[in-house]
Amino acid sequence: MPEDVVFSLRDVYFKYPGSDEAALKGIDLEVQAGEWVALVGSNGSGKSTLARILNALLIPTQGACFILDMDSKESENIWAIRSKVAMVFQNPDNQIVASVVEDDTAFGPENLGLCPSDICEKVTWSLDATGLTEYRNKATYALSGGQKQRLAVAGALAMTPPVIVLDEPTAMLDPQGRKDLLNVLSELHMQGMTIVYISHRIEEILSCDRVIVMNEGNVSWDGTPRDLFEFGKGIEKWGLEVPPIVRLWSMLKNAGIISKEVQPTKDGVVHALCP
């Protein structure tokens, strides 16, 4: 397998104990180093299960998952995998371990055995990147839901992992917080980090390189965000919603008011109408 493949999944099935139906049904997938991949799909489509497979929290019940060329089935690989693939979960309360914001952020790098000055530098950077600098010495329990979510992201970033998997990291963020987080990820992506980003919000995936649509445990579609929007209302069959701005873009495009080349964004359409 070439070195630049981060995830390689072959016919991966996963079934939760006691459940009749498999949550993942034969996933074949490759993600290259440096890619920013969005995983989208309705509730129960298997996105979160797949995310856990990617960090060896779950091991496929059938098929194989290679992470940076390491087979996740081999127990001796687990720690090496998890030190390379950071994970941010949906619910921030489940992943905050310390009582003070800076201690919580330092938990990951401390466990990697870094020296104190490096840890301090990484903590400062990741708190700044997530807009939490002013909360550095605050108690974690006193944070709001959205601030806790930022802290969960800060904790993962502080490990400066080559790969990060984020499971709906913006569910509780306000729109500005969402935009800020996407900007941080976009910067990290430019620096070469591989990002797997799970979301319901289709408007958040515009800056990704690639979108994977999950439906009932399968990959239903794989391509660029722009190509996904060409489906128009067709994406509703996967439980996805066309963002209002994209609906507007496609109405204007179909009426011949703007050309096909115009990007499905606010700035794209405004520029096309009033250059």
């Binding site: 500005q176 935009k179 209002p244 701005i245 606010k266 405004v270 109408l273």
Partner: peptide
Amino acid sequence: VYGLLLPEVVQMSHELFLKGL
């Protein structure tokens, strides 16, 4: 307002209005 963004369609109609449409 800190932390809040108007929906993109509202922002867009406002921008087009300011540009004279």
